[in-house]
C-alpha cells in the first residue's frame, strides 16, 4: 500500500517487513523473543539479534497462544494443544480430535486450555488434566498474578475459580450476553470482559458490583492495562479509550482518557509500553500510533496504513523491538529506540 507520497516512519525505515501471507492471530513474549501465531498454523519466533525462525505447528489456524515456563503453548483448530520451544521442538500436551482448542493460558508450571465448555488444567504433579465444566462454550480464560485464581468467561458472565486446599472452588459473576476475552486488573481486584455488543463489562471481585463501559462505535477486540493508576486501555473507537481504575469505585461515573486520536478508523489492537506511561494503538486500516497517557498526549507514528486491520502489537522482552502484525500477515519488526 506504500506509495511515494507516504512518508515512512522511523520504525518503517529502520525495521524489517515480512509478508507471511497468513493472518496474525496472536503473539507473546518468550525468553528474549516474540512468538507469533498465524492463521495457517505456523509459529514464528522473532529475535532482536538474528533471523526469525518458522515452525509449522498446527494444521488449522492457531486460535490462542501464551508463554509458559519452557516454551509457548498454543491451541489450534486441529484440536491440538501444543508446547513449542524456542529451538523449534514441538510437544503435544493433548489432542482433542476434531474440537477446537479456543483458549490457552499458563502460570509457572501450570498450563491450561479450553475446548468447548471445559477448561483443562495440567500442573506438575499429575499427568491427567483437572477438568472445570461450564454451561456454555468458553470465550476467554485468564490466570491472576499469583496463579491462585482462574477467570473463565462464557455466555452469561464469568466463573471465577479459586484454588483452596488443592480444590478449585467456583463463584459466578453474572451478566447477560456473550462474553469474550477476560482479564484481571493488575491489582487482582477487578474482572473485565469484552462483549459481543460494543462494550466491556467489569466486576469488582470483592462485592461483585458490576458496571458496563459502553459507547463504542464497534466491538472492543482488545484491551490492556497501562500506567500506575492503572488505566484500562481499550480498542473499539477512533481513539484508545483509557478508563481509570484507581480509587474505590474505579471508572464508575468518571470520564475516560481518549488518546491516540490520529487514526482515521476504529482501533483494533492496543498494547502498553512496559515501564512507560504510553500506549500503542493499532487501527482497522493498519495504522499504528504510540501515544502518551495524558490529557494532551503527543502521538508518534509507528506504521502508516497498510490496508489491513492490526491484529497484534508486541514488545520484545528486552523492550528493544516492536512487532506489528495484521490480518493479512504483514509483520513489521523494528527497533523501538534511536540507535
Amino acid at each position: 500500500m506504500n506509495n511515494e507520497s507516504v512518508i515512512k516512519s522511523r520504525f518503517e525505515e529502520n525495521g524489517k517487513v515480512f509478508e507471511t501471507g497468513a493472518p496474525v492471530t496472536g503473539a507473546v513474549s518468550i525468553e528474549n523473543a516474540v512468538a507469533v501465531g498465524f492463521g495457517d498454523g505456523s509459529i514464528r519466533f522473532f529475535w532482536p539479534d538474528h533471523d526469525p525462525l518458522e515452525v509449522q505447528a498446527h494444521s488449522g489456524a492457531i486460535l490462542s497462544i501464551a508463554s509458559s515456563n519452557d516454551g509457548v503453548i498454543t491451541g489450534g483448530q486441529d484440536g491440538r494443544f501444543l508446547k513449542i520451544s524456542t529451538n523449534a521442538e514441538v510437544e503435544e500436551i493433548y489432542n482433542f480430535g476434531t474440537r477446537w482448542v479456543d483458549n490457552v493460558a499458563a502460570y509457572e508450571s501450570m498450563v491450561l486450555c479450553s475446548s468447548g465448555k471445559n477448561v483443562y488444567i495440567w500442573s506438575d504433579e499429575n499427568d491427567k488434566p483437572k477438568i472445570l465444566e461450564h454451561q456454555s462454550t468458553i470465550g476467554g480464560i485468564a490466570i491472576d498474578q499469583n496463579g491462585r485464581r482462574i477467570a473463565v468467561s462464557c455466555y452469561g458472565g464469568v466463573t471465577l475459580w479459586r484454588l483452596e486446599k488443592n480444590k478449585w472452588k467456583s463463584s459466578k459473576f453474572a451478566w447477560k450476553g456473550s462474553h469474550g476475552k477476560v482479564g484481571f486488573s493488575p491489582d487482582g481486584k477487578y474482572l473485565v470482559t469484552t462483549m459481543q455488543e460494543n462494550e466491556l463489562h467489569a466486576w469488582r471481585i470483592r462485592d461483585k458490583a458490576s458496571f458496563a463501559m459502553s459507547g463504542y462505535p464497534s466491538k472492543v477486540k482488545s484491551f490492556t492495562w497501562a500506567g500506575d493508576n492503572p488505566y484500562l486501555v481499550t480498542a473499539g473507537a477512533k481513539e484508545a479509550i483509557c478508563w481509570p481504575f484507581d480509587g474505590k469505585e474505579g471508572p464508575k461515573g468518571r470520564k475516560p482518557l481518549c488518546i491516540a486520536s490520529g487514526g482515521q478508523q476504529n482501533a483494533t489492537f492496543v498494547e502498553s509500553l512496559p515501564g512507560e506511561k504510553a500506549v500503542f494503538a493499532g487501527f482497522r486500516n493498519g495504522m499504528v500510533l504510540l501515544s502518551e497517557l495524558s490529557e494532551h498526549p503527543n502521538d508518534v507514528l509507528i506504521q502508516n496504513p497498510t490496508g489491513s486491520e492490526v491484529s497484534n502489537i508486541s514488545i520484545s522482552p528486552d523492550r528493544s523491538h516492536i512487532l506489528v502484525g495484521d490480518s493479512k500477515g504483514q509483520i513489521l519488526w523494528s527497533p523501538l529506540w534511536e540507535q
Binding site: P23, G39, D40, I62, S136, T137, G177, S178, Q196, E197
Partner: peptide
Amino acid sequence: NNGCICCTVRGDLIRILGGLMKR
C-alpha cells in the same frame, strides 16, 4: 444477544465464524 427479541444473533455462531475467518 440481550436486545430486541426479533434481532437476536447467535453468539456461538459469531465466535465460530470469527475462528474460521482466521484461515
